[in-house]
Design a protein around this nucleic acid. Structure first.
Lengths: 368, 368
DNA sequence: TTGTATGCGTTATCAC
DNA sequence: GTGATAACGCATACAA
């Protein structure tokens, strides 16, 4: 592992030029693949670069106005599987396109201190930024961002979203088709924002009064409309909410299952919460899926790794990251990028769903 | 969300200077908190900065030789919980220290293309780099790195490691104390490297012939020595290996459980593999922990989220990230940083371990 | 206490 | 085709 390849003082373009017996400018032209350099001198320069082990100073290049091949990703947290899936896809695409990717964490609204100064570096250096679920009110809002922005589940001119509404319909239909009629729902945020957003689906994106994310609202809407279309109404207390954490899913599920007339199936807006729901049910002596069916959302790695395997709605997270990067590159190269239609979601049926038990003994399993 | 705060052409120090009626240098001094600026002019400058919405061009500052407050993290993959835990701790510490953190993914040996150019940007900009499990032969090896390096489970002058040996002893002792005598082991890499490293524990760190990571080897050593100390020998086939993925854990566990005289307990060098082992056992009709005890390593979030909860050896990943950042900052500020003793590991007992069933019917559960 | 020269390493512009 | 010159925006070193 060599920390500084050759000498101690970093080599410059001038060093290479001297070594090759040409002017610095010629070296620059060779490096940047400019046309109009005689093959012979080009070879000499290349040899000199090779011999010296020279590497361009990207910082100086950026200052001088040269184009960089750097892309950035801004994400609130890295230890949430959601974000890492997107980042993974983004990283792969960036690699294929020969762009470099740097990831930065966005501080939330509660974070102390001034807007991150590094953001400014990355802003200057990166040709574009992929925003992953940027929360409103975060420190990044006062900061400047690179010229081109694509956001996953966020605001802005170029948005990438999964078909959350369609996915929710898929999930609900699945439960319905299995014969369930008492279907509960656990969302990922407070009901207030949901109802508001759900009532005006297309106005939510840039509506400043919509303080929260839209995906959750669409999931709720799919659930409600599917039930309504089936002629079912949602009993009191059948809609609970959490915050996408496993613990919150446990709380919500407990509330649901302690209802006088508990659901036989629950559609949960996030996989971690869904797993929490399953575990709560098991703790209460309910077998999954025999006594309770559970459907999640996202299809994070844990959904497939858990036992029973979680039936869930797959959202192509990695693909979204990949598309995000491709759009960023297109934008940077001046190509037009039309709005992206929602990514199709897909129901992944595993072992957490089944037909409800025969009706009749609907009670007899209150907690305790 | 404003992409460029005020005007279209970014403001410079000169603009602010003109606005405040002072020289550019004075503005620079104010910004950098240099002593010897009259309060009155300082206030004028501050006001001008506020009024214009000026922000330092960190790129120019870096080129001019100014110190940055940027730290970098290099990690092979971001979608492995191991790395994200470390990054999380690092991010928090960096935030507290008012440093900014950028994360970059290191391409592996198989990656095509030239060494990542962005690495060079970050090298120039960041005062230090935290390396997470750098794999030998990766593209980063030809690249230059920032002046100061701290590595988690990697080479270099400043290494951060958990007490893998001690943790393995803890795990094995736990199993032993429950009464197990037939204890299998699943490692995370090929046995060859392990045995080599295990035989010369302290020479492995910078030994160029040790092509693989050391942590796994120490885990193996703890297992073997603990068994030996208990007067037990390791039956043929009791040591399997995987690659830290769940699937590999399944394969290894299957091999173990199909042995003529299968183990009643397995110590697995990684949590994901351990979960795979549990699921395989369950698929074979074995109850965990009644018929088989399993201990993992790392205590990743999934270990606690799984059912049955996985008994595992906790490695303070977030703390290691935090300490790494603090050491980097100390290094950058010229303070001496002595070698770090191994981080203590801790056995977290959950539900995947219990006493073995009474001896006697040791057979009767061959696959089928 | 404040201002002036000079340079960081590269690219753009325009001569040669 | 190739090379000199002038920025890019800031900080270091020194002069006023």
């Amino acid at each position: 592992m060599r920390v500084r390849p050759t000498s101690d003082a970093p080599l410059t373009l001038n060093d290479v030029a001297r070594h090759a017996g040409v002017s610095p400018m010629t070296v620059s032209n060779v490096i940047n693949g400019k046309a109009g350099v005689r093959p012979a001198t080009k070879a000499r320069v290349l040899a000199a670069i090779e011999a010296t082990g020279y590497r361009v100073n990207q910082v100086a290049r950026a200052l001088a106005g040269g184009r960089s091949r750097m892309l950035s990703v801004f994400t609130p947290q890295l230890n949430r599987p959601y974000a890492t899936e997107v980042v993974q896809g983004a990283a792969q695409a960036a690699d294929e396109l020969h762009y470099d990717l740097v990831v930065m964490m966005l501080a939330g609204p509660d974070a102390a201190g001034s807007p991150a100064p590094t953001l400014s570096v990355v802003t200057r250096l990166a040709v574009g930024a992929l925003l992953i679920q940027p929360s409103r009110g975060g420190r990044w809002e006062d900061a400047d961002l690179p010229d081109h922005i694509v956001s996953v589940d966020g605001p802005g001119p170029h948005q990438l979203n999964a078909d959350n509404y369609g996915g929710a319909c898929l999930a609900t239909a699945h439960l319905l088709s299995l014969g369930h009629t008492r279907i509960g729902f656990i969302s990922g945020q407070e009901a207030e924002g949901q109802l508001k957003a759900a009532s005006s689906p297309e106005a939510t994106a840039d509506d400043p009064t919509n303080h929260d994310r839209d995906d959750d609202a669409q999931r709720l809407r799919g659930y409600r409309e599917s039930l309504a279309a089936a002629g079912l109404n949602v009993p009191e207390g059948y809609m609970q909410h959490g915050d996408y954490s496993k613990a919150s899913g446990e709380r919500a599920a407990r509330a649901l299952l302690n209802l006088p007339n508990p659901p036989t199936a629950i559609f949960v807006a996030g996989d971690a919460m869904a797993l929490g729901a399953i575990h709560v049910a098991q703790d209460m002596g309910l077998a999954v899926p025999r006594d309770l069916s559970v459907v999640g959302f996202d299809d994070l790695p844990i959904a497939g790794a858990a036992r029973p395997g979680l039936t869930t709605v797959r959202q192509p997270l990695a693909l979204m990251g990949e598309v995000g990067v491709r759009q960023l590159v297109a934008l940077a190269e001046g190509q037009p990028v039309p709005p992206t239609p929602p990514f199709v979601t897909e129901l992944i049926v595993r072992e957490s769903t089944a037909a409800p038990r025969v009706e009749g003994s609907k009670k007899g399993r209150s907690k305790g």
